[in-house]
């Protein structure tokens, strides 16, 4: 997976700013996407491109359990969020619906990657390559089960092992 970074250098990005409450009535995902990150960055929709990644700090996706948050980001084109840590419901929602990859990173990646950098995510080797800066960072590996759900394409496509 290759894409460019949109960086929000802060902790605690909550799901209310990812998709404000007034849009939870919107059922059309394409329309929902036009309001992604509106609570924090009204320019997000015009600058985000298909295949981009978001980079942020600790506790990304905290607050409301609204699955609309990963849906809105996903339908904006975001393929992965790289963060120092995630709130658990957001993490789970992202994986369950196969909306985007929640990737936990270490401080070196957080500090090293800048807005606009071109990044390659190599899940099989748990590596993140920064093509712009020619750096490589480790990502925290997905747990066994999360990896399987992601590989299957979401919770409803995943068939638990028969063993």
């Amino acid at each position: 997976m290759k894409g460019n970074i949109v960086k929000y250098a802060r902790d605690n990005i909550d799901t209310d700013v990812i998709i404000p409450g007034q849009y939870l009535k919107v059922h059309d995902y394409a329309e929902l996407a036009t309001h992604a990150m509106e609570g924090l960055d009204p320019d997000f929709h015009s600058k985000i491109k298909e295949g981009d990644f978001i980079l942020s700090g600790k506790n990304f996706g905290c607050g409301s359990s609204r699955e609309h948050a990963p849906i809105a980001l996903s339908h904006s084109g975001v393929k992965a969020v790289l963060a120092l840590s995630f709130a658990r419901i957001f993490y789970r929602n992202s994986v369950d619906g196969a909306f985007l990859l929640p990737i936990e990173i270490e401080q070196d990646a957080y500090d090293g990657i800048s807005e606009g950098d071109e990044i390659e995510i190599d899940i099989s080797n748990n590596e993140i390559k920064n093509n712009t800066k020619n750096q490589t960072y480790k990502m925290k590996p997905f747990s066994d089960i999360i990896g399987k759900i992601i590989a299957a394409g979401g919770l409803f496509k995943y068939k638990p092992d028969s063993d």
Binding site: E67, I89, N93, G97, G154, L155
Partner: peptide, 10 residues
Amino acid sequence: LGIGTSDVEH
């Protein structure tokens, strides 16, 4: 536990 919509369906 609070859950998202995929888990609601599940």
